[in-house]
Amino acid sequence: MNLQFNDEQMTECKRLVARYPEGKQKSAVLPVLHLAQDSFGGWLSTEAMDYVAQILNIEPIEVYEVATFYSMYNLKPVGKYVFEVCQTGPCMISGSDNIIQYIQQKLSIQPGETTQDGLFTLKLVECLGACGYAPMMQVGKIYREHLTKEKVDAIIAEYTQQAAHQQ
């Protein structure tokens, strides 16, 4: 198996497992899947899920069941930056439709697609608990709120630059 947590990731993994009583290590499957997704390129391959099963000493199917239930786990490769734009009622009445359309147009992708350079994925999601700061989207671990077209431009420029820097 090629996928492995490095030392730092393994320490974090052990901390997560230690929060539950003896013999209840299966409880750690959600947090450990988050860790695996963050560590292995933003998505969960079968190999990654099997690795998690092995660490937690549970059957692979127990991990697949969980990974397919929760919407935050990506089961297919995604772009470096995933724009998860909220489309539920409160955001919709605050103008999320226009923002979604604008991002589609600007990046030339449809919801669920990734730009050709592999940088951006657009995903439409349901209420993220930011309804008072709408329209909004989540990018990685942060929320970008009070979105306007200008703000979207700035955010795309910011990440494009960030990615160029890292190359």
């Binding site: 750690a28 127990e62 969980v66 919407s71 935050m72 209420c127």
Partner: peptide
């Protein structure tokens, strides 16, 4: 006190689904 993150499922706010999720299962 331990903090456990969910993973995107409204149903896990329902208390018994939440418990299932804390046990490492589908909600």
């Amino acid at each position: 006190i331990h903090v456990q993150r969910g993973a995107g499922a409204y149903i896990c706010g329902e208390e018994t689904a939440l418990i299932e999720s804390l046990e490492g299962k589908r909600g």
